[in-house]
């Protein structure tokens, strides 16, 4: 375990930036906190989960799949290696989940080209919102930055990670991390209890259609819940054609849209807001556990934060439990 004092942060990242393209939690001019580049805002490691899904680094809102000019496919330059800081343990779980998803069946080259060329650092310790404790990640990343209220204790979990911090001094006081390592698994998480209970109720078919009609009535189809979710992976594809060029790209799609499942003949198996809202929640809490063996919501809170009408997954799961348990 290494030690990184706040005074040395800038120098540490400056050194890294010689080899890596850095993506760090930053505070943008109006106070929005995201993972981005230091030219756009100042470093803001504290504050918990950033807004915007961190998995966007590998699966951006829009990306070019193919570009053909005068019949020749353009070479895509290989992306620079990325060093991304700011994943919470929940974000890492999401990443682990979509790693499996994108590798299943056909392997998504575009995703893995970026993913495999990146080093990932988690944030944990007392750096949550207002100094709240973020539990230890304990793996699933190259590095973990643990804030012990005065310094960052840095733990490496991969060879890449080890190399990145080999020049840092060893940390002297690491008891706090050890203590948390032992207690973290047993820390109760209320939200998790709610999500698990809702998942069971859904799988037991205890939630009636009338409930979904009521929730669906409040969905304004903004798509934010999907676009903010680190485990949402659906995309649409478009072609742009001009005289001598065709460009194919993909962009984030949303199962809250009518056109998502609508067939060419007009039939739509998800033809109402009620069915679509049900599907969004059901997919994560009932279908994914069957297919992937785990609930695919890791409680990052982003859909609840982004939904303009208050029907993010946690709010809906809470209502399910309150009414049907």
């Amino acid at each position: 375990m290494k030690l990184l004092t706040p005074e040395l942060l800038d120098a540490f990242f400056a050194t890294l930036s010689q080899r890596w393209e850095l993506r760090l939690p930053i505070l943008l001019p109006d106070g929005t906190r995201i993972i981005g580049s230091l030219i756009d805002g100042r470093l803001a490691l504290h504050g918990g989960a950033v807004s915007g899904k961190p998995t966007a680094a590998f699966f951006p809102q829009q990306s070019t799949l193919l570009s053909v000019t005068d019949g020749t496919v353009e070479e895509t330059p290989s992306p620079p290696p990325l060093f991304i800081v700011g994943f919470t343990p929940s974000d890492l779980a999401s990443l682990r989940f979509i790693d499996r998803f994108f590798a299943d069946g056909w392997r998504d080259d575009l995703y893995f080209t970026l993913r495999e060329n990146a080093a990932i650092a988690a944030l944990s310790g007392y750096c949550g919102l207002g100094g709240a404790l973020i539990p230890l990640a304990g793996g699933d990343c190259d590095l973990e930055f643990f804030w012990d209220r005065s310094s960052w204790l840095v733990i490496a979990y991969s060879e890449t990670g080890k190399k990145l911090i080999e020049d840092l001094p060893d940390a002297a006081r690491t008891e706090v991390v050890e203590l948390l390592r032992q207690t973290t698994p047993s820390l109760p998480d209320e939200n998790e209890t709610v999500i698990r209970a809702a998942s069971l109720l859904l799988r037991a078919d205890r939630v009636p259609d009338s409930f979904w009609a009521e929730i669906g009535d409040r969905c304004i189809a903004c798509t934010g819940c999907n676009l903010a979710c680190p485990t949402c992976t659906c995309f649409g594809v478009q072609d742009w054609r001009s005289a001598n060029k065709t460009e194919r790209s993909r962009m984030w799609d949303s199962c809250q849209l009518d056109g998502f499942m609508r067939e060419a003949g007009g039939h739509n198996p998800l033809g109402s807001e009620a069915e679509r809202t049900r599907r969004r929640i059901h997919h994560k809490l009932a279908a994914d556990p069957q297919k992937w063996g785990e609930i695919s919501c890791f409680l990052c809170g982003r859909c609840d934060a982004v939904c303009p009408t208050g029907i993010g997954i946690l709010a809906v799961a809470g209502e399910i439990v309150a009414r049907f348990a």
Binding site: G31, T32, Q62, S63, I220, C222, T223, G224, V306, P308
Partner: peptide, 22 residues
């Protein structure tokens, strides 16, 4: 341009957008 991220501090949209904004 490759995407959009809502302002979370705007007193108007408070972190959300509609589908056109997104």
């Amino acid at each position: 341009l490759v995407g959009v991220e809502p302002s979370t501090t705007s007193p108007v949209n408070r972190g959300g957008l509609c589908v056109k904004g997104w």
